[in-house]
């Protein structure tokens, strides 16, 4: 279980409070207006922002003081998921061996395998600039596979892709998450994404994070504030 226990975090003059838990293996959408604190919430879970009070727990272990890399968490950012000067193989090697960044024996095969799982077989020698946006997203997902961490955070990672492509990517993430039994949190502003991807949804309003609710019910009968946002 991923728990945020009485969290209060500050970023500049913005304050975020959260107190909720998510079952392991769940897929949760995070929805809310722009500036409501969605990304800040991810930062707290990923370890980029240290809360002023409260604790982040995973399976009862306290993560609050751990560096991002020490947490059982991988992240797909809005952009900058790949280093543009490195080939895909190098990019993925960094996920495998973050200490040296070198390719060890067997790494090439593991990378190729991960790439094949996201439909990018043979793309290892390419640079990000030689690939389409969808391909870059898939390469980043391959990286998540290699990182092999139980919690995956997605910060509107496919916002720049076309609708059809985005649907494909979400399905691919869902498939991977099922296969690897990942706990996934997806920040999105599109209710269709939430419906499609997540059984549960967290509503974030003015820095206050609610508790997970069934997506279907929430979106079918949204509270007043969410209704305004959804338009």
């Amino acid at each position: 279980m991923l728990e945020l226990d009485a969290i209060e975090a500050r970023s500049g003059s913005f304050t975020l409070t959260a107190d909720f838990g998510i079952e392991a293996g769940a897929r949760v959408a995070i929805i809310g207006a722009s500036g409501s604190g969605k990304s800040t919430l991810l930062d707290v879970i990923a370890g980029f922002l240290k809360p002023r009070s409260g604790h982040v727990l995973w399976k009862d272990a306290d993560l609050t003081d751990l560096a991002p890399a020490r947490r059982p968490v991988s992240v797909l950012f809005q952009d900058t998921n790949l280093f543009p000067h490195l080939t895909i193989e190098r990019n993925l090697a960094l996920a495998l061996n973050p200490r040296s960044g070198t390719l060890r024996k067997g790494d090439a095969a593991r990378i190729e395998d991960a790439l094949a799982r996201v439909g990018l077989a043979g793309f290892a020698p390419r640079r990000p600039s030689e690939m389409s946006g969808g391909q870059q997203s898939r390469a980043a997902l391959a990286r998540v596979l290699l990182q092999d961490r139980p919690v995956l955070l997605l910060d509107e990672p496919f916002a720049a892709l076309g609708p059809a492509l985005k649907v494909d990517m979400l399905d691919m993430v869902a498939k991977v998450a099922d296969a690897e039994a990942l706990t996934v949190l997806l920040v999105t502003h599109d209710p269709a994404d939430a419906r499609r991807f997540a059984d549960q949804t967290l509503l974030v309003e003015n820095g206050i994070v609610g508790t997970p609710q069934p997506t279907q019910a929430l979106l079918d009968d949204p509270p007043e504030s969410l209704r305004t946002y959804l338009g």
Binding site: A67, A69, R70, F83, N97, R99, S100, G101
Partner: peptide, 11 residues
């Protein structure tokens, strides 16, 4: 990104 990957100083 480097932090999320846990890159060492050397890497």
């Amino acid at each position: 990104l480097g932090g999320a990957l846990g890159l060492s100083d050397w890497a």
